[in-house]
Write a protein that binds this DNA or RNA. Sequence first.
RNA 1: GAAGCAGGCCGGACGGUCGCCGUAUCGCAGUUCGCGGUGCGGAGGAAAGUCGGGACUCCACAGGGCAGCGUAGCGGGUAACUCCCGUCCGCCGCGAGGCGCGGAUCAGAGGAACAGAGACGAGUCCGUCGGGCAACUGGCGGGGUGAAACGGCCAAUCUCUACGCGGAGCAACACCAAAUAGGCAGACGACGACGCGGCCCGCCGAGUCUGCGGGUAGGUGGCUAGAGCGGCGCGGCAACGCGCCGCCCAGAGGAAUGAUCGUCGUAUCGCCGCGAGGCGAUAACAGAAUCCCGCUUACAGGCUUGCUUCACAU
Length: 120
Amino acid sequence: MTGGARKEGLSRRHRFAGRGAFMAALRSPRKIRGTASLLHILPGVPGASRLGLALPKRLARRAVDRNRLKRLAREVFRRHEAKRLGLDLVIAPRQAFARGDAAAWVAEVGALLDRVAAER
RNA sequence: GAAGCAGGCCGGACGGUCGCCGUAUCGCAGUUCGCGGUGCGGAGGAAAGUCGGGACUCCACAGGGCAGCGUAGCGGGUAACUCCCGUCCGCCGCGAGGCGCGGAUCAGAGGAACAGAGACGAGUCCGUCGGGCAACUGGCGGGGUGAAACGGCCAAUCUCUACGCGGAGCAACACCAAAUAGGCAGACGACGACGCGGCCCGCCGAGUCUGCGGGUAGGUGGCUAGAGCGGCGCGGCAACGCGCCGCCCAGAGGAAUGAUCGUCGUAUCGCCGCGAGGCGAUAACAGAAUCCCGCUUACAGGCUUGCUUCACAU
């Protein structure tokens, strides 16, 4: 981490490497409850937060839909200040989003990240 | 022109901005990890269901048989198949065409609704001729039932025949390898226990150090040049094969291929306009996971080839 990373970038270090760290974040006692999902928080590597999604097949049957939710969440995250807080974040939706209702999902993710940033 | 049959193909295009993955190269760091710039590449016809077949790994394995499972006109194609092609037969359609688990009753077992006197065992409901006192019995003929009535049917019931088939799967498999706990070997080892035990000596010993092997997290390989794609030629009715030339075409790994804007298109719907047209909204099924060949299923809309029937015209 010698050089400065691009401002809106989201490279590999913002993802989870391996199952271990991901499960640890899921078991973390710190969480924020949104309208339709839960955000697990665990202190991680300083300077670079990591974002993951716990999305069971039950909530999004088709692989296309799961990919879409993940990409939209990542898109919100890479432009958000929470990216630099050095936290391991895992979003776990609790209910299915209607097909094509991308706006509601984007708003949900944005609201959760805003609250994370505000707590600091 | 109308209705239809059988195929083939496409499945928005181009360009900015912000990002992601791989790779080559340059710079920073310079042992690596890494960061940044630039170039190039980056989902599908089904990537899907995981149904059939193979390649590839590991395990098992003398040979043969039995059992089990699969396939089933005939011939061909293929690495192989339950796939594909050709053809015969049967059924359906005026036709182009479509559909078909289409081997065998020589051996054995089993089965047949309803109707019918009687249904796989053999016999006798009716008529008639004969024998007999009669019960009964022998011959001949016929009606009716039904898919079928001493003569067959079903093998999509077992069976028989011929041929094929070991098991598990890339989370296979190979390698590197923290921390923690435990294992093995060696060394040291307290004024510790045991040997009559005070010294020497032997032995046990918590612990310390060193080495070794198994193995988890994690990492690397497998992992993308292939039964590959595109031309042309030759052989073949065809599936397909052979030869020559050209091309390199995703390799992620809690899993990249995204977001947004503009221009131009296509279809449908709504509104405006006499009209040419204009404005707005929506856009199918669906996302690689070791790789291939098939099959099946889903799909907005569009392009195209050959053929059939009917109608019209010449």
